[in-house]
Design a protein around this nucleic acid. Sequence first.
DNA 1: ACTTACTTTTTTCACTGAACGAATTAAGTA
DNA 2: TACTTAATTCGTTCAGTGAAAAAAGTAAGT
Lengths: 405, 405
Amino acid sequence: MRALRTGSKELIKEINRFKVLNIIRHQQPVSRSEIAKQCDLGVSTLSYIIEELKTQRLIYEVGEATSTGGRKAKLLRFNKDHGYIISVKIEEEQILTALTNMEGEILCKRYALFSKKDSPENVTDMIESEIHQIFTQEKKDLSFLLGIGILSSGLVNRHDGTIIRSSMLGWENVPITRMVKESFPEVQVFVDNNINGYTLAELEKGEGKSSQNFLVVSIGAGVGLSVVIDRKIYYGSVGGAGEFGHTTLVPNGYPCHCGQNGCLEMYASEFYFKNKAEDQVSSYSSSKLTDFHFSEVARAAEEGNEFAMNLMKEMGSYLGYGLRNLINTFNPDKIIIVGEGVKYSHLFNHEVNLIANDNFFEKVDIKTELVFSGLNDDAWFTGGALLAINQIFQEPIYEPIKAGL
Amino acid sequence: MRALRTGSKELIKEINRFKVLNIIRHQQPVSRSEIAKQCDLGVSTLSYIIEELKTQRLIYEVGEATSTGGRKAKLLRFNKDHGYIISVKIEEEQILTALTNMEGEILCKRYALFSKKDSPENVTDMIESEIHQIFTQEKKDLSFLLGIGILSSGLVNRHDGTIIRSSMLGWENVPITRMVKESFPEVQVFVDNNINGYTLAELEKGEGKSSQNFLVVSIGAGVGLSVVIDRKIYYGSVGGAGEFGHTTLVPNGYPCHCGQNGCLEMYASEFYFKNKAEDQVSSYSSSKLTDFHFSEVARAAEEGNEFAMNLMKEMGSYLGYGLRNLINTFNPDKIIIVGEGVKYSHLFNHEVNLIANDNFFEKVDIKTELVFSGLNDDAWFTGGALLAINQIFQEPIYEPIKAGL
DNA sequence: ACTTACTTTTTTCACTGAACGAATTAAGTA
DNA sequence: TACTTAATTCGTTCAGTGAAAAAAGTAAGT
């Protein structure tokens, strides 16, 4: 439990400035009196705070509201170009880098390839070089870079900023934020697991806007889970989320790359296709399926290939069991399904709903919404940027921690 | 997400008073200068705060520390008799009531029986009467009653203080805190699920003292789960915890009283004994087992009854799978097993550990501790009292909510 | 045993500054 | 002209602050 900061004049000043700033950020354009009402601050105090924020160029005044019977209110807006954020996604053999403004709007994107042989140091150097190129290309001064958010697969400890283990990258205990910070000592650097990043995007720009407690489940080359409680992402002991993909669905089932057997990931993701085919060689061989990527199996299923259609449906049923267990365990308002699988959801949607909706809370008349994400691939960039932005504008109630070091 | 309070002189005053008070509560006896150091408050401010807390009789001065080379420090203690708390546990056919001081120490206990026919109103009246009897019996003035904590089984919404549904009691949507508060309008009243109550006791007096993130799993006439994140209990959407006992362990397995099939609760609790026996009538009938309560099956197993021993071991294996899935999903520091089953843990401990320890995080060399609760039945009372005490001494950072109304 | 020098604890007191609220000014509507 | 709403000005309030003083010790030296 993080310790609360001790009360002092500075604390109340900081709290109030951030409260005001966040109201402007999320409800712009707003008038002074509207903010004062919501904050329960005196209008005089508010004017003083606004003055300060304006001289810091964090906000600006623009236009006027229509009169409600008296003097028109001047409207305030957040200056989203007050600074810039770099969002980095580390994929299997490339890094994707984007420049965003302080609202997480993407201004420019780049990518750079690397090979499995490259060390974390090499990749960090590439990140540095990409950032420099973006800033020269966009003709912006590096002093405006306020934060860097990095998304990676695998087990990530966001508190100390290390990638604990990523089997995809073959990395272990890489202190990524510290390494990046060496090149940008003035900038706050954050890492997180990529699905948590996506979840941040859902929270601010997607399905999460209307929900306090929800889960994000990713279906693709594996199964991922991100848990949102009270609009905050839950981080387990080591700082990463859990490994829901490796809960046991079928005792003594298909062997998993993690060393266990019968993991959900082996049944409710791309892996299932290959597992099942190796299990039923005869029906497989007559099916003319050539590979087991989501896209291929989906194409075959759409063309009426019986074996592929069944693969999809069975995968959907297993996913349904996974989701049902999540619902019964977490009692979320909503589950958002994301990832490559969403593109092909029409092929297994029915089975998922059939099983997942048959849950404990349904029987007590508490509904759990099941939706597919409506965001596109830019959500990764948005999420990475939000990782930094949310920290920068966080209300400063707690003692500073060493995160984002 | 609860809104943060706006900064003001009153806020900083309240924050600091509660910070000081909580340091004294948890580290007593302490000196002024020690507190000042921890709070980062000026010693002068601290003396002023201490003076106030003393006149409010929340703390008192007692004794002196040994000198460390200069003037001896006067030591401060929390006045645990500053007020009293009532802790109520509603069981199937009785209510248990205890009086505690402000540290949750039990001063006196009572119980009163009721029948299934009694309405929630009758039971509430009984609670009122029990409280009055305790206060006259203990010769204390009712004005010292500061809080009431109620524990009930079933789905509880602690935010609005209702028992949403308890199949054991046959109650639905009972606004229990409001009903109790009618008799004690000056007193703060709180409800929670009984396992969450137990968890509070573990947090303050048990295994939880050394752990930030842990799970409490109860094994007895059912399976319960309580989730602690960052030393705070996680409450799902409706305000109750999830229903982990009703996650599907065996698709299309034994039918459960909740309407689903193959629930964990049917395999990792007392229920399993009956289920399995009905499945295997022949081996059962030769086993001479007469009933399927935990105590009976355990007794038989201890006497060497093969069928009973196997029941226990199998139950343990299923529980192991349940715990493994919890570990993989939540990545806790520790799982604490509580409830009636703990008494007989030697009969299934081995199987539980065998399966639960074979988890994802173990393979990445992150250990999850598995322990049996060391608290006794008084922990229910302690937990109920802490429900109220923790709220009363909470640092007042957030806008007040309607809880504990 | 007494003095002196040094520590640590606690209190006193003038000062600071963030929020506050009443009064004032500004800008509108009917 | 009367009323409404918005924004600013300015003296007041009070929680926290830090330096200094007071209180209460310890540890030598004589």
